[in-house]
Write a protein that binds this DNA or RNA. Structure first.
Lengths: 152, 152
DNA sequence: AGCTTGAGTTTCTTGAGGGAACCCTGATTG
DNA sequence: CAATCAGGGTTCCCTCAAGAAACTCAAGCT
């Protein structure tokens, strides 16, 4: 096996990587999210090899992140986000925010997000689902959970 | 070139992937975050090839995500998160949340996070930095920003 | 009958990932 | 003072995934 399979690790990060950690997968998800839902659209937009795109799409469908469905009498298919897939968009939003801040440079961010609720162009921030205060690297302590596999 | 380089795309997701999108990189970051900061610790914890670990660590240091510094008179080094790297932990937190929800199964999440501000075990949620309301896939519309490269 | 379009397959080449052994430097030990 | 040890990598070789480009196939259109 060339690439190690992360899915078996007792780690939600590793398991998530097993689903969307392969090269191109997050970009494919982004394309589907913003409306490029067909094979040739995604292929042309990303410049990805058709072979790899086929593999990635199948993988994402197998994991329930995308749904493949016909849109014509002819054998034509489009890919749409499932609920599971739509929640992965959170990840894309956070990636965008980090890239905007640290990698965009003087040109500024390539894409902006308008938030429907307030109508403003804005960014996302992580907040504690319990108390609503910010939740970043230094604000939390990891501890073993029920699925940790530890015997304690 | 076997793997396409995403860094040149006008897309913050692609640029972020260029920094931490390679296999293992997010897991290395997690290890450093939770205190496995030395070469052999990370290697043993992940079971990653030493060659690949060397490459990844160099890449992360080159991109300013990790800092390599001596911790002894002997040639011994540890890797620590820079501010840029610490903000990437947001990404790990979101990945954890998604993996916990969709992949953990009956065993439950392998790791829990205690939030210092409220003392509770909790998850992170994405909220608009402007109005504070939830910000997920359906709540926003992407539009071209200043660094989009479009001529308009 | 032939052209077009969308959606993949197939073939071939290259190079990254994995494994295991090896190397180097500066303590520590017998 | 030679031998050992530990941390932190290198080197070598092999396999398999990524990339590029050509090919296929089915349904409609002309």
């Amino acid at each position: 096996m060339q690439r190690t399979n992360f899915g078996g690790m007792a780690c939600s990060i590793a398991r998530t990587l097993d689903v969307i950690g392969e090269p191109w997968s997050p970009l494919i998800l982004r394309d589907v999210w913003v409306g490029a839902t067909r094979f040739d659209q995604i292929q042309a937009d990303l410049g990805i090899s058709r072979k790899v795109l086929t593999e990635r799409l199948n993988h994402l469908v197998d994991h329930g992140v995308l749904d493949r469905r016909p849109y014509d009498q002819r054998p034509r298919y489009e890919y749409v986000l499932t609920e599971k897939g739509a929640e992965l968009v959170d990840l894309l939003i956070v990636m965008t925010g980090w890239g905007d801040k640290w990698l965009a440079g003087a040109a500024g961010p390539p894409v902006l997000y308008r938030h429907h609720a307030c109508g403003e162009i804005s960014n996302a921030e992580l907040r504690c689902a319990h108390c609503g205060k910010p939740m970043h690297a230094g604000d939390i302590t990891p501890l073993a959970g029920p699925g940790s596999g530890s015997t304690s």
